[in-house]
């Protein structure tokens, strides 16, 4: 696992030896009462990320987001609120967008994950990435990977006929109107307020008017 290289920094080294020292002195003073220090359980999980097979051995507390960022070093996906409120961590799993922060990596055995790194490259942008550049769909850029993963999925969801709160008739096929895109993008917050340009970018890709 070339991407799973683990380097202990000097700071982490000092922290871990201090913890060990504290635990061992505590253990010697209360030799009978002290419970044995439990090893954190780990689990093996294999998934496909941006087309490449990956196998990780993880503490089950590791979210999909932390697995992507900290273990696979795919730092394009961002951690905003870490509670599913901001959408910065949006990735596409088996063709559907989810909040990577509210999913454990161990729930994704066998799944296919697409992150912003898998949508396009600097040389060959995904049409949605190109449209965000063209329409200035960001300022600071922190929410942008999540916005783009969400925007790509939203157009796909409209094509597949997934209903939304903005729809007047539940039985009619939804269309990529401005109202539809605004409603469907409400799980992605932009602190800089680039919303109107994001809708323009999405409308451009959808071949519609915002």
């Amino acid at each position: 696992m070339g991407s799973e290289t683990f380097q202990l920094s000097r700071r982490e080294m000092l922290m871990s030896s201090a913890t060990t020292a504290a635990v061992s002195s505590f253990a010697s003073e209360t030799a009978e009462a002290a419970p044995p220090v439990k090893a954190v359980p780990t689990y093996k999980v294999a998934m496909t990320v941006n087309g490449a097979s990956q196998t990780l051995t993880l503490d089950p507390r590791t979210t999909l987001l932390d697995a992507l960022r900290e273990h696979l070093h795919l730092t394009g996906t961002k951690k905003g609120c870490d509670h599913g409120q901001c959408g910065a961590c949006t990735v596409i799993v088996n063709g559907e967008r989810i909040n990577a922060c509210l999913s454990l990596a161990v729930q994704h055995q066998g799944d296919a994950v697409t992150t912003i790194e898998g949508l396009g490259t600097p040389e060959r942008l995904h049409p949605m990435q190109a449209a965000f550049v063209k329409h200035d769909g960001y300022q600071c850029g922190y929410c942008t990977p999540g916005q783009i993963c969400s925007a790509v999925s939203v157009l796909e969801e409209i094509k597949r006929g997934i209903p939304s709160h903005a729809q007047a008739d539940l039985m009619a096929a939804p269309k990529p109107t401005g109202a539809e895109m605004r409603e469907r993008m409400s799980g992605n917050i932009c602190r800089c307020g680039a919303y109107s340009n994001i809708v323009d970018a999405m409308a451009d890709v959808a071949g519609a008017r915002a």
């Binding site: 939304s164 799980g187 992605n188």
Partner: peptide
């Protein structure tokens, strides 16, 4: 569809 966000509903 009146609840949560698209990501959460998925």
């Amino acid at each position: 569809v009146a609840g949560a966000s698209g990501q959460l509903r998925n």
